[in-house]
Design a protein around this nucleic acid. Sequence first.
DNA 1: ACCTGAACACCGTTCAAGT
DNA 2: ACCTGAACACCGTTCAAGT
Lengths: 192, 192
Amino acid sequence: MRNVAKKLDVEAMSLYNHVANKEDIVDGLVDIVFSEIEVARPGTVDWKTAMRERAISVRAALNRHRWAVGLMEGRMNPGHANVQNHTAVLGCLREAGFSLRAAVHAYSVMDVYIHGFAVQEKGLPFDAPEETGQVMQRQRENGAEMDEYPYLVEAATELAQAGYDYDTEFEFGLDLILDGLERFKAHTEPNT
Amino acid sequence: MRNVAKKLDVEAMSLYNHVANKEDIVDGLVDIVFSEIEVARPGTVDWKTAMRERAISVRAALNRHRWAVGLMEGRMNPGHANVQNHTAVLGCLREAGFSLRAAVHAYSVMDVYIHGFAVQEKGLPFDAPEETGQVMQRQRENGAEMDEYPYLVEAATELAQAGYDYDTEFEFGLDLILDGLERFKAHTEPNT
DNA sequence: ACCTGAACACCGTTCAAGT
DNA sequence: ACCTGAACACCGTTCAAGT
């Protein structure tokens, strides 16, 4: 609040003449982020590529506005863009032949993964390889024998050497889920 | 800090004689939660049921300690139980035949999903059906024509009627991912 | 109608002074 | 060695007083 006010060359209390409270401002900001998410118009591409491109679009938006990570879901005053986005995704799945329950399932897995990945990526203390070694070393200093954790050491040294690419990691899980949904769809609704 | 101190019948500043700072306390608490996570001992069950049971154990622990949701990952001073858990999971996957990269991929998807689901479940403003209607109504009050969002209305009324079960929702996504990992494993390492 | 100074009830943390 | 009062630098928010 005080920082926002400062940027407007105004005192913090003045803001309360224009917005209800901080939550109110965040509601508006979050809806702007929602408005930046692109989802293919109905009937232009199959559901799988539509959902894949949307997922990547969400991730891109969250990367442009890292402060929004963890604030997008659970809004209790969803804005226009938010509701519109929900409708678009639900519509895409339903028109592709997903049953209502199946669509809700699919939506849940996809968004849990997309936002969960963003949270993990944001909260990670180390830029993967660089600081991983330091964490391991602190373990050692605390008296931990490293041969107690062979698999951890193995993974840490591998990642330190070859690096860790968030983009490919994200898409691995994304495709795993999309393929799973495709199989689930074929399994529950053999005709289509 | 001040609340913790109060529970110990002490002033807040006294705590700094025993811990470095707030983060230090949280580190310790989080590691207790990690210690409650059960993972099958090597060789007792196949990797898939081991990972499935662990996922459910994580979720149960997070349900017992909802404050820990979102604090488990990205610790930069991982405790003993944390490191031990990491090792156990990595070991389970490696000994089941996952390559190192594949194990890291698998670990990433699983934990992103598990913790992402917990975050979503915690942050949800409405206990599913009950408050869903209220949110929809506020949309209407804001001048939104409901036939703009047929799929949303459809889903909301359905969920309001039949209810929404977090446990089955969680396990749907979990099994989708585990099945996907099994297929991925078979695909990349045809022999085993 | 809009802005603001003073104040309230919070945070985590430091440090010199006490025992 | 451990505790504490006073203080600092923060939060979001209210309200009466100003223009």
